[in-house]
Nucleic acid binder design. Sequence first.
DNA 1: TGTCAATATAAAATCGATTTTCCATAAATC
DNA 2: GATTTATGGAAAATCGATTTTATATTGACA
Lengths: 233, 233
Amino acid sequence: MDDTMNYMIAEATKLASPSTTRAKVIAKKLRADILNGRLSPGTKLHLDELKNALGVSLSPLREGLSRLAAEGLVKVEDQRGFSVAPVSRRDFHEIIDLRSMLETKALRASIEQGDDVWEADLLATHHILSKLDDKRWKQPYFEQWEEKHRAFHSSLISASNSPLLLNFCQILVDMNHRYRRIFNLKNPPNRDIAREHRALMDAALNRDADKACSLLKEHIDRTARYIVKSMPE
Amino acid sequence: MDDTMNYMIAEATKLASPSTTRAKVIAKKLRADILNGRLSPGTKLHLDELKNALGVSLSPLREGLSRLAAEGLVKVEDQRGFSVAPVSRRDFHEIIDLRSMLETKALRASIEQGDDVWEADLLATHHILSKLDDKRWKQPYFEQWEEKHRAFHSSLISASNSPLLLNFCQILVDMNHRYRRIFNLKNPPNRDIAREHRALMDAALNRDADKACSLLKEHIDRTARYIVKSMPE
DNA sequence: TGTCAATATAAAATCGATTTTCCATAAATC
DNA sequence: GATTTATGGAAAATCGATTTTATATTGACA
């Protein structure tokens, strides 16, 4: 085996697993599948199937699934395995209620403590998002818009300097996101979301915490109403 | 092998694992060890040691540790293993802040929705706790008091009918509990905790949500101040 | 014909062994 | 002498095989 070969293998190894873990990769992939609805609520997650589909063995698979269970995206029942968490109106209302409360708290803290870098980051993520706004409902921009939308909301609260609070927010945002992707896919809503985001950013940059929080709350609630309308039962 | 033997084995098996899993048992035991400070913050959780100490193999051990990581009691670093979550003043303040907020929310909901069974349960857990109040600082009642104290606070919010909120509260209470056990062990505090609990219960039973919430908040904050005083640095 | 117990099967949970990764130490090169 | 580059050992991560558990099915008995 010559040097070139050695180099190639070294590079490949480095790229394939730079300090990451199978369990983490698995959790990430399955989380994405659950959040965007590819795996629908209630779906049984058969270990053998997943094992083969993902090309890993049971230990990291179970570990990945356990993490998702802790995030509330997967349900575990002893001796009966894993399944995608169910959905319900009740559950959704709870998510929205808590998310409003915690995310406005984080936003207020962020507005109080955010520095120049926070402002710059907020402007940047908003700019990226706004560029995608009119293409949102055209493939292949749908996924991109979703990603950037999350990034924008994330930077709003990123300066809150509270890891625990941000962790809870992240979990609730993920849960909220899942409902949106499952129930609100087809119809472009009859509202100017771009304007809402703009106003939100402006209030944040003007350090008007009260206004920013009430805008955020309204933003979350409005989306929630659209989703509830699309829910059966 | 005769029938008696068969029966005994069947019974033993039933008792040893009635629909529970190793991972769950491990998580429960380690959680208890971390919460009461037997495992101190930062302690490296060597897999081989734990494996031998607990008499299990790696898969369920990792799974149990992953669950604790999701609860914030254990820290995971890829390729570097598990360790008991560190503590800090900042972290503690965040815990208290969030706990006040979420637990008063749950208490309010509980007071609005609680039925006769809730009232009865609240009276019962309070009674049990009050019986232990004067023995609290004498062995072997210390652990018992702790357990019943948690049960009392738990039943206060148990009628809130919000699984997600209760789950967050549980996590925060556990975190709070750990700080109390680590930093506030020796000195009986100079305050009438029994009276505080009594007032809390009365306000809840009288359906005076505002009063109950402010009492609860004060109760949490007061304990927090005692803990902070005992913290070094 | 309905109920209960025994059995078969599929899936989850666990184990022991193997592989991979990291880190400390030593050797080597500039 | 300082910075890189090997090497060895310890620990984490993963694997494939085994054991345990739940459930569906069958057959015996009332």
